[in-house]
Amino acid sequence: MHLTFELTSSAADVRETLGLVRGDLMRLGVNQEHWDTAEIVLAEVLNNVVEHGYAEEGGGAITLNLEITPQALHVQVRDQGRAFPGLTLPDARSHDLTALDVDALPEGGFGWALIHHLTQDLAYVRKAGENRLSFAIATPD
């Protein structure tokens, strides 16, 4: 089963699209736990395109392709925004939080840790002026 969603680069559009994806996936029998994980990853990936790929400029096109199999939800995200620096994905940054003062707590930098942690087969290519990010989210046991 294939689903394709087209959206533009704004946080409001990301929120609306996630609502639509949720409705479709629930209808197709994806369970709540799988969706909880998928929603976290999709929100981080799509908001990253909005904030960095298109640098908060509205109106950029984003295409979200989903393929559902019994084993996993396979995702491809395409956009025409800026390429990732060095054509590589950011690492999962991890913070040592216990040693930090309240004032030094990080307010960002969580997104890629979540993406790396919750996905399999995470891959990125820049092709034909597009960013193409693909990954899978395994169906929970």
Binding site: A43, E44, V102, D103, P106, E107, F110
Partner: peptide, 20 residues
């Protein structure tokens, strides 16, 4: 029902607002 990393950042900012 849902908190993304930006939302988490806002909760951390709220924590910092209250100080030590």
């Amino acid at each position: 029902q849902f908190l993304d990393s930006s939302g988490l950042g806002a909760v951390v900012a709220a924590r910092k607002l209250l100080g030590g």
